[in-house]
Nucleic acid binder design. Structure first.
Length: 572
RNA sequence: CGGGGCGUGGCUCAGUCUGGUAGAGCACCGCGUUCGGGACGCGGGGGCCGGAGGUUCGAAUCCUCUCGCCCCGACCA
């Protein structure tokens, strides 16, 4: 492709509303343009990158035995009513009506449609298992779209759904997809990590997220430094602390005055007690009634773990009124001692000796409080995992917290949708049974954005070779010099003949302008054709990632570029 | 949905408080000089100042309403 003929509008400055690096660079590199909040045009550069991600995903999905289908973007409401999500999904589901006033929605995900498709066509265990996928535009009317392609309202997703006669088969496909996903992100040249994840409101039994590691990632993940355990912090477990014998000299509780001291920091500073010796008492309203949660003062309650521990559907921090009703004290002075409400506590609270907690009386706290003696509670792992916490899976490992961008998610769905939508098959005994399902998603645009978040510098994008819009760029330093231009196009032609995707910057621009644009666009290999070197039959070969420059003979360009791409692909 | 902010050439922004002929830099077009890391000079094109209503002799500027966008929060494969 000739740069001079390509719609490739690079920008010197980032648009003011671009909030993350990947969006700024995608805009500046002429890949995308915003059409409305969370909705973008993909320009030729953008299409190329997204196309490469799609190709890798498609190839690996096919290789893994899945079959490609295409479902509609506009979905009739009946299907969503049947699964119960028409009412459950909320405003994120964009609803619309046709001229006959029939209700539809823009599909944010396609469990209903695929389940309907399969139930119409598949009857027998002989046809199972089956894995169907599509690469399709989705729409989610996000409250606050941001971060460009990373969290748009309209976005491209690869979503696969598998159907099985039994659990064993579903588990096998889950592992198959797990491995396919690893291959996909490896082939993309990305540093990633599969982590245990919460299943959220899609429902299901267990789940992994595939995280591209990047400091700017929205999700925090906890990974063990000794074993392979890694989990989203939303659900990361922490090793249960060992039991400790009750301290014999434990003192008796005593009420102390703490005027106006409510927060852990305030009380800790006022009483000169370390935050971890405080018991934080949180009052929650839940669908199981009011429940009190206790965590050590320096820990944070993980609401997802809490919700699961008490078997609740929703939990919300109680209003001031409920707090007063429950503890007879304004918020900030709640404590477990003497409460009649259900109390659940983190393991760390169990072995605190002479702890400090609210006295359930305004401006007062209790000191010398000991769990087991002064109050009873049910104990669970409730805290949010922190850097340095002990690994739940191995004996010596320690968790470290890193950040990641969720680019893939695999679920074992079970029979949630097949039961709701009556998707059954006949087994060998002729008995009707619901199919077991799995569901496997990859955000295509988000993967491209994550690649940039993970691979850029102050000058621009540094594409991993497999995702780069072009394999290499030929830069004739001065197109007014006939020899330069001729040599550059000669090289360009031979690269193309060798099956490489090349961009040639044939614009009549100063060298500096071309170099800056090349750095911005981030094509991994650059061939710089200049007058002086050309006299000796040489050109420069420059790597975007390291800045390394080598002089090579014109005739060797093709083989050198091929070798380099091979290497960068394998090396990541 | 709550709180805050912003809409002025394609892009980044000044001008708004204190009403009086719409500006700068970049980008774009022409000519000349320059030519290996975002050159320079001269000349030029391009803006219903988001939209509607109002106040005023006069509104980018003041008032009201509206639309869009951004940030923080809550929410979220």
């Amino acid at each position: 492709m000739r740069f001079s003929r390509m719609l490739l509008p690079t920008l010197k400055e980032s648009p003011a509303d671009a909030d993350v690096v990947s969006l700024k660079l995608m805009m500046r590199a002429g890949m995308i343009r915003k059409v409305a909040a969370g909705i973008y045009n993909l320009l030729p550069m953008g299409v190329r990158v997204v196309g490469r991600v799609e190709t890798i995903v498609r190839e690996e999905m096919n290789k893994a035995g899945a079959q490609e289908v295409r479902m509609p973007v506009v979905v009739p409401s009946e299907l969503w009513k049947e699964s119960g999500r028409w009412d459950a999904y909320g405003k994120e589901l964009l609803r619309l009506r046709d001229r006959h006033d029939r209700e539809f929605c823009l599909g944010p995900t396609h469990e209903e449609v695929i389940t309907d498709m399969v139930r119409r066509e598949v009857r027998s265990y002989r046809e199972l298992p089956m894995n169907l996928y599509q690469i399709q535009t989705k729409f989610r009317d996000e409250i606050r779209p941001r971060f460009g392609l990373m969290r748009g309202r309209e976005f491209t997703m690869k979503d696969a759904y598998s159907f099985h006669a039994d659990d064993e088969s579903a588990d096998k496909e889950y592992r198959n997809m797990f491995e396919a996903y690893c291959r996909i992100f490896e082939r993309c040249g990305l540093e990633f990590r599969p982590v245990e994840a919460d299943t959220g409101n899609i429902g299901g039994n267990f789940s992994h997220e595939f995280m591209v590691l990047a400091d700017t990632g929205e999700d925090a993940i906890a990974a063990c430094n000794a074993c392979s355990y890694a989990a989203n912090v939303e659900r990361a477990e922490v090793r249960r602390p060992p039991s400790q014998p009750a301290t014999e000299q434990a003192k008796m509780p005593e009420k102390v005055s703490t005027p106006g001291k409510k927060s852990v920091e305030e009380v800790s500073a006022f009483l000169k007690v370390a935050p971890k010796r405080l018991i934080k008492t949180l009052i929650y309203e839940t669908d199981k009634g009011v429940v009190v949660a206790l965590v050590a003062g320096d820990d944070e309650l993980n609401e997802i773990k809490f919700k699961r521990a008490i078997g609740a559907g929703f939990v919300v921090l109680a209003s001031e009124g409920i707090v007063v009703e429950t503890t007879n004290a304004p918020s900030g002075f709640a404590g477990p001692v003497g409460l009649k409400t259900r109390i659940v506590a983190d393991f760390n609270v169990r072995w605190l000796t002479d702890a400090v907690t609210g006295a359930n009386e305004a401006n007062s706290h209790l000191i010398n409080v000991n769990a087991g003696r002064d109050f009873e509670a049910e104990y669970f792992d409730l805290k949010t995992a922190r850097d340095g916490d002990a690994c739940p899976r191995c004996a010596s490992g320690v968790l470290s917290i890193r950040r990641g961008i969720e680019v893939g998610h695999i679920f074992k769905l079970g029979t949630k949708y097949s039961k709701a939508m009556n998707t059954t098959f006949l087994d060998e005994a002729g008995k009707e049974r619901p199919m077991i399902m799995g569901c496997y998603g990859i955000g295509i645009g988000r993967t491209a954005a994550a690649a940039i978040e993970q691979n850029h510098d102050q000058y621009g994008i540094i594409w991993p070779a497999p995702l780069s819009p072009f394999d290499c760029e030929v830069t004739p330093v001065n197109v007014r010099d006939e020899n330069t231009l001729k040599a550059a196009f000669g090289i360009y032609d031979s690269l193309k003949e060798a099956g490489l995707d090349a961009l040639i910057d044939d614009r009549d621009e100063r060298a500096g302008v071309k170099f800056k644009d090349a750095d911005l666009i981030g094509i991994p290999v650059r061939i710089i054709v200049g007058e002086k070197n050309l006299k000796d039959g040489l050109v420069e070969l420059k790597l975007r990632k390291t800045g390394e420059v080598r002089l090579i003979k014109v005739q060797e360009v093709v083989q050198e570029v091929k070798a380099l791409l091979e290497k960068t692909t394998k090396g990541g």
